[in-house]
Amino acid sequence: MFKRLMMVALLVIAPLSAATAADQTNPYKLMDEAAQKTFDRLKNEQPQIRANPDYLRTIVDQELLPYVQVKYAGALVLGQYYKSATPAQREAYFAAFREYLKQAYGQALAMYHGQTYQIAPEQPLGDKTIVPIRVTIIDPNGRPPVRLDFQWRKNSQTGNWQAYDMIAEGVSMITTKQNEWGTLLRTKGIDGLTAQLKSISQQKITLEEKK
Rank of each mutant, 00 (worst) to 15 (best):
D23W: 06
A120V: 13
M1G: 00
P87G: 07
L78M: 07
K198P: 15
T38K: 01
E45V: 10
P27S: 06
A108N: 04
K71F: 01
T38E: 04
Y81H: 09
N141Q: 05
P66V: 04
P87K: 07
V68R: 00
K177L: 07
L11W: 06
I167L: 07
Y117W: 09
T136N: 12
A163D: 14
G106P: 14
A35F: 06
N179I: 05
A21N: 11
P124L: 10
L5W: 03
E33H: 05
M6Q: 00
M31A: 02
R153W: 01
P87F: 11
Y72A: 00
T175Q: 04
E63L: 00
A34R: 03
A168W: 04
K188L: 08
D54Q: 07
L148W: 01
L5K: 01
M173E: 00
A88R: 08
D127M: 05
I138L: 09
D165L: 00
Y112G: 04
L64Y: 05
L10P: 01
Y100P: 00
Q151G: 07
Q89L: 05
L5Y: 08
R134L: 03
E180W: 01
S156Y: 03
D32M: 07
P132I: 12
T129F: 13
N141M: 11
F97G: 01
Y164N: 03
D149N: 05
Q24P: 14
R153N: 00
R4Q: 11
K43M: 08
Q69D: 01
N52R: 11
Q89T: 05
K154P: 06
V12S: 04
T38M: 12
L16C: 07
A85W: 02
I119G: 09
A35H: 03
M31S: 01
W181Q: 12
P47C: 06
A19E: 03
L101W: 15
E63C: 02
V68G: 02
A104I: 05
R186P: 00
E208T: 10
A22I: 14
V68H: 15
I200G: 12
G182S: 13
Q36G: 08
M1E: 00
A163P: 14
I13G: 03
Q107D: 07
L5P: 00
S201A: 08
I119W: 09
T116K: 15
N26C: 10
K83C: 02
T25D: 11
Y28F: 10
S172A: 11
A108T: 13
R41W: 02
D149W: 10
G74P: 00
G142Y: 14
E33F: 06
P144G: 08
T183V: 07
A51S: 13
G159F: 07
A22R: 06
Y82I: 01
K102D: 09
D54N: 11
S199R: 11
I205L: 14
L65A: 05
R57V: 15
A163C: 11
G114Y: 05
S156E: 02
D54H: 08
L101G: 11
R90S: 05
E99D: 14
L65K: 04
Y72I: 01
H113L: 03
E122A: 14
Q69P: 05
A85S: 10
Y117T: 09
A75M: 00
P121W: 12
P124G: 09
